[in-house]
């Protein structure tokens, strides 16, 4: 009986330390596709395991940061047999954006583990045709 108690306290003591080391471990880097059309930039990122609530998108000055926490339900008594996908349980990737992006109008959506961002261009930086006068 006393043995079980000891193990439990050890576990409890160990958990904050593991949480801290989890935090330190480099996050998974999601693969992205980036396209541009005349209205703005389209960014798609693969982040399986992230739901809408776990997604965190920030713009700080000219840096766009995409973060996502993996919320995967795994039974408590499950033991891994074979692992290809492993890591600290979160994704992070940042990009530098230019002054041509209207950061107030960035749109984000999430579907089946794929994040879709649309970074609209500010009105003044949209392409406009220049009329060439024939003299």
């Amino acid at each position: 009986m006393s043995e079980t108690k000891e193990i439990r306290t050890q576990e409890r003591a160990a958990s904050p330390a593991t949480a801290a080391s989890e935090e330190k471990k480099a996050a998974l880097v999601p693969p992205v596709d980036i396209y541009e059309n005349e209205n703005g930039i389209v960014l798609l990122a693969d982040m399986p395991g992230v739901s809408k609530d776990g997604l965190d998108i920030q713009v700080d000055k000219d840096v766009l940061t995409i973060k996502g926490a993996i919320a995967q339900q795994i039974p408590e008594d499950a033991k891994p047999l074979y692992v290809e996908f492993s890591g600290p349980g979160r994704y992070e990737r940042a990009f530098t954006i230019g002054p041509d992006v209207d950061i107030d109008k960035i749109e984000a959506s999430m579907k089946a583990g794929v994040v879709r961002l649309f970074l609209p261009k500010a009105e003044h930086s949209k392409p406009h045709k220049i009329e060439v006068k024939v003299a």
Binding site: Q72, A78, K79, E84, F85
Partner: peptide
Amino acid sequence: KGTFPPVNVAETPEKVIAYIYAPG
């Protein structure tokens, strides 16, 4: 490494569970 989609397999006393990370 890097094959799409990555797969994990786990087992519990009652079942075997395969997780396939295939977004989109």
